[in-house]
Amino acid sequence: MSDLSIRLRPVLEADLDMFRRFGSEPGLIGLDWAGFRDAHGPARQFAHDGYLGADYGRLMVEVEPDGVAAGFVSYIAGKYGGPVGYWEIGIALLPQWRGRGLGWRAQAMLCDHLFAHSPVQRIQAGTHPENIAEQKSLEKAGFLFEGIVRACEFRAGQWRDGYLYSRLRTDPPPPL
């Protein structure tokens, strides 16, 4: 367990450099590298909605009390059917903050935030079969493994399977 205290906060203009790094440094994001991205995209998105859109958003994971940004969590709306959809969440932490107990707590905090401010019943997250650390993080954050999603992602020149996890509003929250 980490003794570091964290909070989630909205994206600030100063955070855009981190987003640019994730889009331009192949090793920084790890298994989620999907090729180079538009270096000006983060500034355009920030100018458009501050990364707090109705169907998509990001919140910074900040280590307290120093206010250091360790990475970010993201959420995007999805829909299976019916009037209320679900959120799919993700996380990206800078390498020096990984393995310190921040990830699972940030994802649990994001779930609490989304359940408190939207009517969704379901939050889901996907990860790579080889990402054991993220699988453990999701389980610690209260997610349950649902199964394998075959050939769901094109990465490093080939189609790859993914693991799907979910947390329902009615599931017990993890102890933070």
Rank of each mutant, 00 (worst) to 15 (best):
D3M: 09
S5C: 11
I6E: 12
R7L: 12
L8K: 02
L8V: 04
R9S: 11
R9G: 04
R9V: 09
P10C: 05
L12Y: 05
E13K: 03
A14Q: 09
F22Y: 13
F22P: 00
G27F: 01
G30I: 11
H48W: 07
D49F: 02
G53T: 10
A54C: 07
Y56W: 15
E62C: 00
E64Q: 06
G67Y: 04
G67T: 09
A69Y: 00
V73I: 14
I76C: 09
A77K: 09
G78L: 12
K79L: 14
Y80G: 14
Y86K: 00
G90Q: 01
L93E: 08
Q96T: 13
Q96L: 04
G101E: 10
L102I: 12
G103S: 08
R105F: 03
A108D: 13
D112C: 01
A116H: 03
P119C: 07
Q121C: 08
R122I: 13
I123Q: 02
A125G: 04
H128K: 11
P129Q: 08
P129N: 06
I132Y: 02
Q135I: 07
Q135R: 12
K136H: 13
K136L: 14
E139R: 09
A141R: 01
F143A: 05
L144C: 13
L144F: 09
L144S: 15
F145L: 13
C152F: 08
R155F: 03
G157V: 08
W159V: 08
W159L: 15
R160V: 07
D161N: 12
R167V: 06
R169C: 01
R169I: 09
T170K: 13
P172A: 15
